[in-house]
């Protein structure tokens, strides 16, 4: 499936939940492409900015949208990799800060 198709498919659904794609479409499509690449090599859409173990059960917390998105968007207006953001983040109403890693390193099971 093409990144653009996924973009259109997900956009409506996620916006209803209050999550918006990064307004920089190049970044968003790049991240969706990375998710597709991870789907191809691991079998699941593992977060592009975290190291996947290749075991879906181990990595269920970082399958996109990751479980950390809720708190990250609440606190920083953006998820860890910058794919999903808040409306305010996109409108420049809040500062674009780096989102620190919320995932405990103990979850990195190999």
């Amino acid at each position: 499936m093409e990144p653009e198709t996924i973009y259109e498919m997900l956009k409506k659904v996620q916006e209803l939940k209050g999550y918006y794609f990064n307004k920089d479409k190049e970044i968003t499509l790049g991240l969706i492409e990375a998710l597709l690449f991870n789907k191809e090599r691991y079998g699941y859409m593992s977060c592009p900015c975290r190291l996947a173990s290749g075991n879906r059960t181990n990595d269920k917390d970082i399958v996109c949208p990751c479980v950390y998105r809720i708190k990250d968007v609440e606190e920083y207006g953006s998820c860890y990799c910058g794919l999903y953001v808040s409306k305010e983040w996109n409108e420049g109403l809040i500062e674009h800060e780096r989102v620190p890693e919320r995932r405990p390193v103990s979850r990195m099971i190999f």
């Binding site: 970044i27 790049g30 990375a34 690449f37 991870n38 592009p48 900015c49 975290r50 990799c81 910058g82």
Partner: peptide, 9 residues
């Protein structure tokens, strides 16, 4: 780095 990570790029 990670090859898929935007911050790494």
């Amino acid at each position: 780095s990670l090859s898929t990570c935007r911050h790494c790029k």
